[in-house]
């Protein structure tokens, strides 16, 4: 339909669409690869060049993300059990975050307005996630918590 209009003589041709998409997408991919590569070769349990959790630093308590970097390191090396021991929430969130990242890069590449692929999840699931997150935050600091770190 659009192509047939090219032949109408008096039409002023729009300027080329700005195409920053591929550049931005490649930049995001490059930074992600660097970060994951660094994590793959540096065990956070032995190296100190990782961001520390300030909630843990000031309160001594575990936040819902504590152990997340070590869990990601364990996941990268295929040690699922160890990853769950460090932080089961991080293991749960990792595939969601991966899906989100891939969707985001795809949209940036195409020059789409960035939208969200998680709007059609049943609200109960999202509520469940919020409750699980809060319960995990509290629960992992209670005496009977079975996992680490």
């Amino acid at each position: 339909m659009e192509l047939s209009n090219i032949h109408s003589a008096a039409r002023i041709v729009p300027p080329a669409l700005p195409r920053r998409g591929p550049f931005m997408a490649i930049l995001i991919i490059a930074i992600s690869v660097l970060a994951v590569g660094y994590l793959y070769f540096h065990n956070p349990a032995e190296h100190h060049l990782f961001p520390t959790c300030l909630f843990h630093y000031f309160t001594g308590l575990q936040c819902p993300g504590c152990g997340g970097t070590r869990a990601a390191y364990a996941l990268l090396h295929g040690r699922l059990g160890l990853a769950i021991w460090y932080n089961p929430l991080a293991v749960l969130v990792a595939p969601i975050a991966l899906l989100w990242g891939v969707d985001r890069v795809r949209r940036v590449w195409r020059g789409d307005v960035v939208s969200n692929c998680f709007t059609h999840i049943p609200p109960r699931v999202v509520w469940g996630l919020a409750i699980f997150l809060t319960a995990f935050w509290i629960g992992r600091n209670l005496p009977g918590y079975p996992l680490g770190p």
Binding site: C53, L54, A97, N116
Partner: peptide, 16 residues
Amino acid sequence: PPNYLVQSILVTICCC
């Protein structure tokens, strides 16, 4: 409309 679910989860986990 976008619901910023993953952003919120990551903020909770990463920024504590």
